[in-house]
Design a protein around this nucleic acid. Sequence first.
DNA 1: GCCAACGTTGGC
DNA 2: GCCAACGTTGGC
Length: 151
Amino acid sequence: MRYWLMKSEPSDVSVDDLAALPGQTVAWYGVRNYQARNFMRDQMKVGDKVFFYHSSCERPGIAGLAEVARPAYPDRTQFDPENKYFDPKATAESPRWFNVDVRLVRKTRLLSIKELRQHPELANMRVLQKGNRLSITPVDPGEWAFIMTFL
DNA sequence: GCCAACGTTGGC
DNA sequence: GCCAACGTTGGC
């Protein structure tokens, strides 16, 4: 079992949006970065634990606990010309983008990036590194356990 | 709105 | 295969 941090813009899907969805589950569509895609396609397994993170918003930070509910399958938005994530180079025979499904375990208090940065134990967290833009990052088991002590 | 960082594109 | 130009991300 592995641990991950997945960024979502709350203007798109917030933790409250996720809580209101059927099964509290969402398809993690729209990832158009190969590294993040590969994490989903090649490494994420059902039951993997996820920090649900709000990004590009007023209060960025961890907003919930979630888990992988379905292994990777082709992201349907790549095939839809009306969708902003449409990819003309993708075909049904040869899909380019994949997504897992993520299910909310529980909403948490908002653990801000500012607070995360105050802990030296978390200094190496990928999401805290300067210039990090990757929307899905692995979380070290020790970092996960540490965060869970005060989340 | 700024801008640093980084991924992608495309001409050569 | 190089690399400059461009686009995007995302915290601040």
